[in-house]
Design a protein around this nucleic acid. Structure first.
Lengths: 199, 199
DNA sequence: ACCTCTCGAATGAACGATCGTTCGGCGCTA
DNA sequence: TAGCGCCGAACGATCGTTCATTCGAGAGGT
């Protein structure tokens, strides 16, 4: 029986396996409490082989930190399907809140933030991802206000940042109190953001 | 010439020196990238002596994590001096924003948050400190609304959380963009919070 | 004033474990 | 058979912690 994958495909699959396993380890233990041996063991590969696919631990951390971009793209696609801007914003809030409310995402985000403080390349990735979200929101806000006066671009940007702050804050609190945001919480968040957008 | 301190005072001073030095190390390098030797060397004491004052690295981390409480108390005292609730809130925003905008505080907070994800005792300290700030704000909000209808307690609590989210978010962003919040930023924050409180 | 005794503070060598990384050789695939 | 993916022992460094030992301040005696 032949392997269904050629060498190239197999190598790519290995690489993906390592990344996903590393993410699990980092979620469970954090970046610096996870050893290369932990990852290799959990992935079921040898210690040395890991270095055939990644330059070292730093490269793995950077790889994981950039994973957020994939999740953001999913949210962008989902929100993009909705034509009415106000409903799209509502959908975004629900999706992003749900995303941020997952324990593993809070764990990873916290690790990434702490790492970003001292690692400029991680920080730039972090800021880039944030701006993607901000741009998505400002786009929606501009769509909602197309009949009114032209919006101040800088102010719109700031408001989008505030919206993200509110969502992320509520989500983080929900994780630390070990229960998902209640319906009341979500409604209150929704109202608050509406008021923020309206003004 | 006699030493101006007895044994007790000297021991307490040593303890304080170690804690402060550890905080500096943690800010520069992070919890898990800082070794006990780093701290001892920077504090100018021997490796073994550190264990005469602290049980180990974990105890040191917990000690640092609880340092935030001191800073919060300072803010409480400053805000408490102001009798008019709306001016007190304005003062609080300025003080807390300034506190959160300091690079070393962002660095430490990020470390503590990441640690709290996996260390329940750190998490509970973190939540306790947060609630202190929330209570301070809700007190002010209730003072501002004493002539109006009675406030829903839960809703007031949530709004206070939102206010903190906005301040912390702006502050964190300012640190990563390497410049203090501009006057425009602060004004916009102030307006947004006002609108949030008013409703 | 002086000697003694006590005990906590301080030291740094040493320990075993584990870290990130390297590398020579083995085995499968094309 | 040529070559690549894979393996795991080995390396030097460093980790958190322990411990036998030294030091010196201060209490109690005379």
């Amino acid at each position: 029986m032949k392997t269904p994958f050629g060498r190239k495909e197999s190598a790519e699959a290995r690489r993906l396996l390592i990344i996903e396993t590393a993410a699990l380890c980092f979620i469970d233990q954090g970046f610096h409490q996870t050893s290369i041996r932990d990852i290799a063991k959990r992935a079921g590969i040898s210690l040395g082989n890991l270095y055939n696919h990644f330059e070292g631990k730093g490269a793995l951390i950077a790889e994981i930190a950039s994973l957020e971009a994939t999740d953001i793209k999913k949210i962008e696609n989902n929100v993009g399907k909705i034509t009415k801007p106000d409903q799209a914003l509502k959908k975004f809030i629900a999706l992003y809140l749900d995303y941020c409310s997952q324990t593993q995402n809070v764990a990873l985000s916290a690790e990434i933030l702490a790492e970003a403080v001292r690692n400029p390349s991680i920080a730039s990735g972090f800021l880039h991802n944030r701006q993607r979200l901000v741009d998505l929101i400002t786009g929606l806000m501009r769509g909602m206000a197309n009949e009114k006066q032209t919006q101040n671009s800088q102010e719109t940007n700031d408001r989008a940042q505030f919206i993200l702050d509110l969502i992320e804050g509520l989500a983080t609190r929900s994780v630390f109190s070990a229960k998902k945001p209640s319906k009341r919480d979500v409604m209150h968040l929704q109202e608050t953001i509406d008021r923020l957008v309206a003004s």
